[in-house]
């Protein structure tokens, strides 16, 4: 083999090795979405409510942890909505699909005549059930985030307690007020991947609907503006950290829909 050939081969190996050592290059993120690249993160979860927890081991936990997970998980790359889905976006979905839920009680309870309240176009849509949220996501070519995806988007890979860091700061999220605010009102509260309002504003549905054999339930994340005070027996609202999950027992859709629960969507990154 002559030296020239060897040189070209070495060059090729070098270029290839540089290429494989670099981050994978993804196509541009869809509008309004942020990229969360593939990789491992420490999926540490603490339960936010105390009742009805032991059965979770039957459903989720293969490792003998009864009340928490703390494990390293690999999450493939995905795009996630930068903000919670807004009233305006939800109206576009309704206009396009004429979606009608099977059980319409309290569906968009705060709207009137098919229109969201004036001045709230950019507020997160609420009074939607998990089924309603899934219907929206399907229409948008997206899906709801798994708990792992949601938490990684909020937390990054450094295990931080809040989207913006480890230090609690009530000025970086809408966590104790009378109402929702326009999405993205707290840019300084952005997560490492640029997601906004991951803490506060509204609770977010995740793709975690399950049955323990006796009930249906889902895990909701992130807390909301509403913070019931006066008793430790209330489902805890207010500031809810990245790693905290709250079990939401399902019953009738009228109860499941709430003024404090919204959602955002994800889609696979390619």
């Amino acid at each position: 083999m002559n030296r020239k050939k060897i040189f070209y081969v070495l060059i090729a190996i070098f270029i290839f090795s540089v290429y494989i050592n670099n981050d994978i290059v993804y196509s541009a993120a869809p509008k309004g979405m942020q990229l969360v690249p593939a990789g491992e993160f420490q999926f540490h979860v603490e339960y936010r409510w105390r009742e009805g927890l032991t059965l979770d081991t039957l459903v989720y936990d293969d490792h003998g942890f009864r009340y928490r997970f703390n494990e390293k998980v690999y999450v493939p790359a995905f795009y996630i909505d930068k903000t919670e889905v807004t009233n305006e976006q939800f109206k576009a979905f309704l206009d396009a699909t004429h979606y009608k839920p099977q059980w319409p009680e309290n569906f968009l309870k705060h709207w009137s005549n098919g229109m969201y309240p004036a001045g709230k176009a950019n507020h997160p849509v609420v009074w939607i059930s998990l089924e309603d949220a899934c219907a929206f996501a399907k229409w948008a070519g997206k899906r709801l985030p798994s708990e792992q995806e949601w938490q990684k988007a909020a937390q990054g890979t450094d295990g931080r307690d809040w989207p913006w860091g480890n230090v609690y700061d009530p000025n970086k999220a809408n966590i104790d007020s009378d109402d929702t605010q326009a999405v993205g009102s707290y840019p300084q509260g952005a997560s490492p991947y640029g997601c906004l309002d991951m803490t506060g504003n509204v609770w977010e549905w995740t793709d975690s609907f399950a049955s323990d054999g006796y009930h249906y339930f889902s895990w909701i994340r992130g807390g909301s503006y509403f913070f019931a005070k006066g008793s430790l027996w209330y489902m805890q609202g207010g500031p809810i950290a990245n790693y905290q999950r709250t079990k939401y027992w399902y019953m009738t859709p009228a109860l499941n829909r709430s003024s404090s629960i919204g959602f955002r969507c994800v889609k696979d990154a390619k």
Binding site: W233, Y234, L255, S260
Partner: peptide, 20 residues
């Protein structure tokens, strides 16, 4: 109501109206 109550501003009395 319990342990759902506290998610929003529906109190124990309001919640009856949203039962099936």
């Amino acid at each position: 109501d319990y342990p759902r109550m506290g998610i929003d501003n529906r109190n124990q009395f309001d919640m009856y109206s949203d039962l099936p």
